[in-house]
Nucleic acid binder design. Structure first.
Length: 843
RNA sequence: GCCGAAGUGGCGGAAUGGUAUACGCGGCGGUCUCAAAAACCGCUGGGGGUCAACCCUGUGUGGGUUCGAAUCCCACCUUCGGCACCA
């Protein structure tokens, strides 16, 4: 409080004026909208009444509405609000439409930031995470969303990760989890390996910290997601945004081709290669192995060995360090051996080059410079011939200046010459298959999912390594493998588990002799791949979920969240479901039937919000000053939800004013003299009400919150004018007010509940059915008929709806404004769009 | 480079073949006030006009289809997002 004497004279005066105004208001009984009072009041009541607890014995059809769970980073920012408030509005709307809606919430609680905090501030990750959850719960509750808190799940809780480990064991048992030595992406800052999906951008940086990654050879655990590559390309059972579907398709990267064997001069060995262009095989003038190809050593002749090994060394260093160069030279080294083209018996030099990746196809390719850009560059560099075998449509027979990768007519291709490249593709593939030297094959870009993380704060991988028994899964009845509480966090970032003797040393579950535990933990995306399953029955302890309740709720009917998870969480969770189905744990194919991706909320300066830019919006502040309802409604009003957009502190004030005016319409209607409004006035009011219900219903269905709110604003503006007229005494007025409150309920739940109570509605507004519109009441009696001459608007006429064409034409031709443009011209024709427009075409 | 989305007043946006700019912000004018703020009421794309009627023009740029195009087609430009030698 400011001491009284600190007030300057003018401040003193305005204080007095404010006091007088307040007194006047009380005397006049004009009550003001006060969200800071009504919001906590209703939140408390809803909680006490378990208003949002979803039950399985409800007779209405079930609807599982889910929003991606938040990560326990510590503070709820406006981005969380943007993801959750509109989603809550849609869930509430769905409930009012007659569904038994479950809208759960939980926390994604494992992960690096907790561990970083431990290293930096000496606070245990568990404590840090739990404190954050406590704080976030309070912030989430201030939003007034209809979350069923009784279903809350926290992924770092042993009662949760026990089942994460259980899923791992099931996957292992069914051959879907395996351990392999592989060159993996390693973040030198986070000191852990990463899945391919977590490495981003041109410079291949770590998704979390931005540090460029390096390659490291490590023994790691993988999930066999590639087994599902083909099925994951099938989106026919789900209704997901095209954007996500495209991204997943590209990520999986299916390509059809032929795998065939190249011969080797002076050796019975074969080199399998993969190509998507078997039609170009006669244009092969060299072949290339990846530097890491297992045959390199054997096929390198002594006189080339030194050079080859130097290149291999260089390639390896490149893979580890030099990842920033975008303009990579396509160089390589001849290894002294010749490969044989099985189609024409030609001998071609065999190279190694780092543009051929060991991780795709067979790690070896045929080099067809005329019809592949990379091969073209390579052949140019080493002076290799570039014969054309697919003639471009208007080819003049001259050497190509660039690779031609399109379709054309086959030339210089033996008996295949003259075929179109498309026909030749099939013909050559057929011949290779008949001769037993090749086979049609589908390749995917997708790699298996690397789940090992060399960090502490994750679910331990339930595996024991025994000198005698090898890899031994921890038996189910010994789950969970608990994370030790007393771990030491080293600033080197190395996993504390490695140095925790009691954790590391154990006995083999198989033979009972001393053995060591796996010290890596699981990728947190493993935890979030099944959290939606857990929500169906969170306390259940005989399995990850209660099969009966699971069957009732699953699959998720509507999922919402950010697009950034398109090729990570959203792909993993689909894989997870399919894997569980094949194991027999679940009986459906897809986890989430419909998906909606919200956009990103930007700072007031139209830039991405960040502390360094100083453009971060704190939702708590707005909740304190303007209320949660205003903040919710404003976020929905900014623009289309999937587009995101910049925050505006002026914009939110506009929405706040709107809510004040709603309050004014409902709580403080004027008192016009007694009397009856005219039938026309009543019809007009009803038209407004029913048109608005129709518009808002359509918009809510399609997630168009911005235009729904605009329609409610229009209706309220109408009511503000009407409230001084006699219509306030009519049933149409009560209907209008009721409808307005009901339509606001999903968007501004506290305000709606308060107003609903004040008009005497039965508690709660959120259990009321959504209002229905009457098409007849919504229909316009008079419409504006636009009169055009040659497509230019020349007049606007107010006419009764449903006007006949003849009558419309008569009126249009009767218009003086129109006559000016048609009087001395020939009328070619008229076009009539009922209740909208008439266009007179003249010459 | 390839793939995808999008370009509309001063700003966020609305309109997906038929009145361009709904709704909100901002701005201008007014009411209330000693004054200001708040609130409320008007006006508000640009240019012209005897500032009235009215006219011209206008949805990234240039073409096209159509009686009529922000909307459909072609080419280009810009911005954002995804992919990164995937044979």
């Amino acid at each position: 409080m400011v001491p009284r004497r600190a007030l300057r004279p003018c401040a003193k005066r305005s204080f007095l004026v404010a006091c007088i105004a307040a007194v006047v208001e009380v005397v006049m009984k004009k009550e003001k909208y006060n969200p800071t009072v009504i919001e906590p009041k209703w939140q408390k009541k809803w909680e006490v009444d378990h208003l949002y607890h979803a039950r399985e014995d409800d007779p209405r059809p079930k609807f599982y509405f889910l929003t991606m769970l938040p990560y326990t980073s510590g503070d709820l920012h406006i981005g969380h609000w943007y993801a959750m408030a509109p989603s809550d509005a849609k869930a509430r709307y769905t409930r009012m439409k007659g569904y038994n809606v479950m809208f759960p919430i939980g926390f994604d609680a494992f992960g690096l930031p907790a561990e970083e905090a431990a290293i930096k501030h000496g606070i245990h990750p568990y404590k840090w995470t739990m404190a954050n959850i406590e704080r976030m719960r309070g912030q989430l509750k201030s939003m007034g969303a209809m979350w069923d808190w009784e279903r809350e799940a926290i992924t770092c809780d042993p009662s949760y990760y026990k089942w994460t480990q259980w899923f791992f064991l099931k996957f292992y048992e069914h051959g879907l989890a395996y351990r392999a030595m592989a060159p993996v992406d390693w973040c030198p800052h986070c000191n852990t390996s990463l899945a391919r999906e977590q490495v981003w951008g041109e410079d291949r940086h770590c998704e979390r910290c931005g540090t460029p990654v390096i390659k490291k050879d490590l023994e790691q655990w993988f999930f066999r997601i590639t087994k599902y590559a083909e099925e994951l390309l099938d989106f026919s059972k789900i209704d997901w945004p095209e954007r996500v579907v495209t991204m997943q398709k590209n990520w999986i990267g299916r390509s059809e081709g032929v795998r065939f064997d190249l011969g080797i001069k002076g050796s019975p060995k074969k080199i399998p290669v993969f190509t998507t262009r078997p039609d170009t095989v006669f244009g092969m003038t060299f072949a290339v192995l990846s530097p890491e190809h297992p045959l390199v050593d054997e096929l390198t002749t002594p006189e080339h060995r030194a050079e080859v090994e130097a290149y291999q060394f260089k390639a390896r260093r490149m893979a580890e360090i030099d990842r920033l160069s975008t303009e990579r030279e396509r160089d390589g080294v001849f290894i002294g051996t010749y490969a044989i083209n099985p189609m024409n018996g030609e001998e071609v030099p065999l190279y190694i080059a780092d543009y051929v990746l060991m991780t795709y196809g067979t790690g070896a390719i045929m080099g067809v410079p005329a019809h592949d850009e990379r091969d073209f560059d390579f052949a140019r560099r080493y002076g290799l011939p570039i014969p054309v075998v697919i003639a471009p449509p208007d080819w003049d027979g001259q050497p190509l200046k660039a690779a031609y990768v399109g379709e054309g007519t086959m030339v210089n291709s033996g008996r295949f010459s003259g075929l179109s490249s498309r026909e030749g593709w099939e013909a050559i593939a057929d011949e290779m298959e008949q001769r037993g030297i090749g086979k049609r094959e589908v390749q995917y870009r997708l790699h298996d999912w690397l789940i090992s993380r060399q960090r502490y704060w994750g679910a331990p991988i339930p595996i024991v390594y025994c000198a005698d028994c090898g890899i031994v899964p921890v038996p189910e009845d010994q789950l969970p493998v608990l994370l030790p509480q007393d771990a030491e966090f080293l600033p080197t970032g190395e996993s504390p588990l490695k140095y925790h003797k009691e954790f590391l040393h154990t006995t083999c579950p198989c033979c009972g002799r001393p053995a060591e535990r796996e010290t890596d933990t699981m990728d947190t995306f493993m935890c979030s791949s099944w959290y939606h399953m857990r929500y169906t029955s969170p306390g259940y302890d005989k399995g990850p979920f209660d099969p009966v309740r699971y069957k009732y709720w699953m699959p998720v009917d509507q999922y919402t969240g950010g697009i950034e998870h398109a090729t990570m969480h959203l792909l993993y969770t689909r894989f997870f479901t399919k894997a569980c189905r094949d194991i027999g744990i679940v009986d459906h194919d897809e986890p989430m039937l419909r998906l909606f991706n919200q956009g990103i909320i930007l700072g007031e300066d139209n830039e991405k919000m960040s502390k360094s830019r100083g453009n971060v919006v704190n939702p708590d502040e707005y909740v304190r000053t303007m209320g949660a309802d205003t903040t919710r409604a404003y976020l929905m009003f900014i623009g289309p939800w999937d587009a995101g957009g910049p925050w505006s502190s002026r914009g939110i004030e506009g929405v706040h004013r709107f809510l004040h005016r709603v309050w004014d319409v409902v709580v403080n209607p004027a008192k016009p003299p007694e009397g009856q409004a005219s039938p026309e006035e009543i019809a007009a009011l009803r038209r407004m009400t029913h048109k608005t219900i129709r518009k808002v219903t359509d918009d809510m269905e399609a997630f168009r919150f911005n235009t729904a709110i605009a329609a409610l604003m229009e209706m309220n503006n109408y009511l503000l004018k009407a409230k001084n007229t006699l219509v306030v005494h009519s049933e149409a007025w009560s209907e209008a007010v009721r409808s307005l409150i009901l339509m606001l309920a999903p968007i501004t739940p506290h305000l709606a509940e308060e107003l609903w109570e004040r008009i005497g509605g039965p508690y709660s507004v959120h259990t009321q059915p959504w209002p229905q519109w009457d098409e007849a009441a919504a229909a316009e009696e008079m419409v504006t008929l636009v009169v055009q001459v040659n497509g230019k608007v020349r007049d606007r006429l107010s006419v009764p709806a449903g006007l006949s064409e003849e009558k419309a034409r008569e009126l249009a031709f009767g218009s003086a404004k129109v006559q000016r443009y048609i009087s001395d011209r020939d009328i070619v024709k008229t076009i009539y769009v009922p209740d909208a427009l008439i266009n007179i075409v003249v010459k």
